[in-house]
């Protein structure tokens, strides 16, 4: 049990899908955050698409998913 033997039947390809799915779920959760919360701390007149932290997070997750997809 301590060695996760019960998961020994999962192939490397399927395991990779588990990681890619995790990134997708995190991406969805980030997208669900209210925009107001994302910009908290920035005055309304200074809010632009480039300081939208949702976009930053999605970009990072996309790069991460590409690495795991490639290797």
């Amino acid at each position: 049990m301590f060695n996760f033997d019960w998961l020994s039947g999962v192939s490397q390809e399927n395991a990779k899908m588990v990681f890619l799915s995790l990134y997708a779920v995190i991406g969805i959760l980030v997208m669900l955050l209210p925009t107001e919360y994302i910009y908290e701390g920035i005055p309304k007149e200074d809010r632009h698409w480039w300081n939208n932290l949702k976009l930053w997070s999605i970009a990072v997750l996309c790069i991460l998913a590409s690495i795991y997809n490639h290797f």
Partner: peptide, 24 residues
């Protein structure tokens, strides 16, 4: 050597189960 996901029964310290549950 170029598999980022190592099988569960690998002898290296980085099986995918350890990476997912222990590390992530």
């Amino acid at each position: 050597h170029f598999d980022i996901i190592q099988p569960q029964d690998t002898k290296s310290p980085f099986p995918w189960t350890g990476i997912l549950f222990g590390l992530t």
